[in-house]
Design a protein around this nucleic acid. Structure first.
Length: 519
RNA sequence: GGCAGGGUAGCUCAAUCGGUAGAGCAGCGGAAUCAUAAUCCGUGAGUUGGGGGUUCGAGUCCCCCCCCUGCUACCA
């Protein structure tokens, strides 16, 4: 049997410590647009989202509410899944790290790393906050003296630091036996990887950062923890759980069914879509762990940027306040998808503002695109009884062909914002085309009947082309547009260039993107 | 501190190997009436952060300075 090769696209699994926000949403929307684009190309796609549900903070959140951690994460996972459904995210699977299949996959990965001789026990020492019941890095801590000079970590230094969450408690310097991974062994192989497969880390700016980290020297890392109950047990060692990153990263593997036969139809992943802040874990630790376990490496990691809210990071006291719910309700989920992917370059950062959102919605979606559909369909109804006539190709058809080339180039490079811009240039050209051809004039002169047919047929074709090109960004709205054009479904990308809508019965709906003042 | 990436029209950004600085939005003027009063056309005298240098010619190369952002290993 010929197993199809799936294009396996993942997103970072979200930490079960609070409800989904716009930052989470940006990543899912972008990854979803990538997945949908590849489906429009006719590729089998496997697109997976998930939740990271272990760890101390999860345990604490549950305890604060007087419920079990499992109840807490069940509740939160449902909230996330619902949000993604509302946003029309088309994931094929949803992996949760508390699932049996994940425990199995994570443990098997550790076993293979151990078989490779890359794991050993040693002493892990660090600052331990009894209040938090967790180890802290010096960055997590604050000084209790005026000026703290740099110095060697150790018990003496612990007396001069304190945990910001438990200022009254003493900080302890503690040590425990842990499992360590020989990350240092993979330094050269990782550098070779970047050299031989530059596309492994994208966009390029992230690749440079990763290279520097590796060149700076890699030390072995501890990948287990004692004293922590809420986690995946270490294989054959009940005293330990698998430490966060090793456990969490393995979700990409466990979601494929690993180690069961058949997981190879998904693995290796084509693209891990992540936030730029966790590039190191995905581009250094993760490939090293896979090398150790002798598993194929993912083909690429795409590190997107972040949304800024009025200059600051996330909406704190200053800057814009925007919840995911508010943003979805403003102009509908598809409009939010469009706005975020249009204004936040997929290879960089961008800003969020309500003014900008409203402006983009009104100018581009309502006025340019919505009105183009409205006026085109309206004229086909008025002049041709609602049936698309047969018409010669026009300049506008040539424009469709040109646009498709540039659109595919942008989308194949994952430059989603450029894909949107390219498609919207076609919409602008179509509006200009209407002005040049003046169908209302053509309609007055029977001698121009064929010219009118060509005008209307071209407009129908351009709407169908836009329907396809914008589907990854606004799936629900574009399904409606397809239906208004008399199409059974959004056309596949390969069919767009030679579409013929002759004979299709068009219908005018209530307006794809109603103007805010008229809603 | 070190490394990396940026500073171009009011705003967001483009400018292949160095060759007369462009686009969208906003603003201003005009046209049209199919349409969600939506659309279309016309309109840009910007010291390309500052200074110096190389060159026939630099936003584009070299040097110095100023400002912004990111990374600088076990919080996800």
């Amino acid at each position: 049997m010929n197993q199809p090769h799936f294009r396996y696209i993942t997103t970072a699994i979200d930490y079960a410590n609070g409800p989904p926000h716009l930052g989470h949403a940006l990543e899912k929307i972008g990854a979803d647009a990538m997945a949908r684009y590849h489906r429009l190309k006719g590729e089998p796609v496997h697109f997976v989202l998930g939740m990271d549900e272990h760890g101390l903070k999860v345990l604490q959140s549950a305890q604060e509410r007087g419920i079990t951690p499992q109840e807490w994460v069940d509740d939160l996972a449902a909230t996330f899944a619902e949000a993604w459904a509302d946003l029309h995210i088309s994931n094929d699977d949803f992996i949760r790290t508390t699932e049996h299949r994940h425990r199995r996959g994570a443990q098997e990965l550790v076993r293979r790393m151990r078989e490779a001789g890359d794991l050993y026990t040693s002493t892990y020492a660090g600052y331990y906050c009894v209040g938090c019941e967790a180890y802290k890095t010096e960055d997590d801590l604050e000084s209790r003296v005026e000026e703290l000079s740099p110095g060697e970590p150790g018990p003496e230094r612990a007396t001069r630091l304190r945990c910001p969450l438990h200022r009254s408690r003493e900080l302890e310097w503690m040590a425990e036996e842990n499992w360590f991974f020989r990350l240092s062994r993979y330094q050269d192989q990782l550098l070779d990887l970047l050299e031989e497969r530059p596309e492994f880390v994208q966009p390029e700016i992230r690749r440079n950062e990763v290279r520097r980290v590796i060149e700076g020297g890699l030390e072995d890392i501890s990948i287990s923890r004692a004293r922590l109950e809420w986690g995946v047990p270490w294989p054959d060692d009940k005293e330990h759980v698998i430490y966060v990153w090793t456990e969490a990263l393995s979700n990409y593997l466990s979601a494929t069914g690993f180690p069961e036969p058949g997981h190879e139809r998904y693995w290796p992943a084509d693209t891990h879509v992540i936030g730029k802040d966790i590039t190191r874990f995905h581009c250094v630790y993760w490939p090293a762990m896979l090398m150790s376990a002798e598993l194929p490496l993912p083909r690429s990691v795409w590190a997107h940027g972040f949304i800024n809210f009025g200059g600051g990071k996330m909406s704190k006291s200053e800057g814009v306040s925007a919840t995911l719910e508010e943003a979805m309700e403003r102009h509908g989920p598809d409009a939010l998808r469009y706005y975020l992917l249009r204004d936040v370059p997929w290879n960089g950062d961008g800003d969020f503002s309500w003014d900008r959102f409203d402006h983009v919605y009104t100018a581009e979606l309502a006025n340019d695109l919505g009105n183009l559909a409205s006026r085109s369909i309206s004229m086909i109804q008025r002049y041709r009884g609602g049936v698309v006539p047969t018409g010669q190709r026009t300049d506008l058809d040539q424009r469709i062909t040109d646009t498709l080339v540039r659109y595919r180039a942008a989308m194949d490079a994952n430059l989603l914002h450029q894909g949107i811009a390219t498609a919207m240039e076609l919409a602008a050209a179509a509006n200009a085309f209407v002005g040049e051809r003046a169908p209302w004039e053509q309609a007055k002169d029977p001698a121009l009947s064929q010219a009118l047919d060509s005008t209307l047929a071209s407009l129908a074709r351009v709407l169908a082309a836009l329907d396809t090109m914008l589907e990854p960004f606004m799936p629900e709205r574009m399904r409606v547009l397809a239906s208004e054009l008399g199409l059974e479904a959004v056309p596949m990308l390969a069919d767009v260039a030679n579409l013929d809508l002759t004979g299709r019965a068009v219908t005018k709906g209530e307006g794809l993107f109603p103007r805010p003042d008229r809603k």
